[in-house]
């Protein structure tokens, strides 16, 4: 079981974009890709990012991944976003951005 909750707030427009996915509800290939992106990002072992003062008009991101055994939320901004998480972010944004 894996659930992903994604939120992007702030930005020049201040418009929130969000998404909540239960991988069980996705076609198997898409669920497989997402699970792989989470694994490859090392999501549960990433070092906590130091808090930053907000960038004017910057986006703020929050990604929560929940499994049977654990749950974690990572918060980041445009300029301190972990590189290893970017492929996952791209996938989530593609789903959330235009709906």
């Amino acid at each position: 079981m894996m659930r992903i909750v994604f939120e992007r707030t702030g930005g020049f427009m201040g418009r929130k974009v969000s998404l909540s996915i239960d991988l069980a509800d996705l076609p198997p290939d898409q669920a497989g890709t997402l699970k792989q992106l989470v694994d490859e990002s090392n999501f549960f072992k990433l070092t906590e990012l130091p808090p930053k003062t907000p960038l004017p008009d910057g986006f703020m991101y929050s990604i929560t991944v929940e499994t049977e055994t654990t749950q974690r939320t990572i918060h980041a901004s445009d300029t301190n976003f972990p590189q290893t998480l970017r492929p996952l972010l791209e996938n989530l944004l593609a789903r959330a951005r235009v709906r």
Binding site: G11, F12, M13, L55, P56, D57, G58, F59, D78, T79, E90, L93, A94, R97, V98
Partner: peptide, 29 residues
């Protein structure tokens, strides 16, 4: 960035995205 619908000031400089350049024209906002 790709598909970056935004502009911001990072404390030292201006940063601009290209909007929805990565989407098909009919879906771009």
């Amino acid at each position: 960035d790709k598909g970056y619908d935004n502009a911001f000031w990072d404390g030292q400089q201006m940063v601009y995205g290209d909007g929805d350049e990565d989407l098909p024209p009919a879906e771009r906002l």
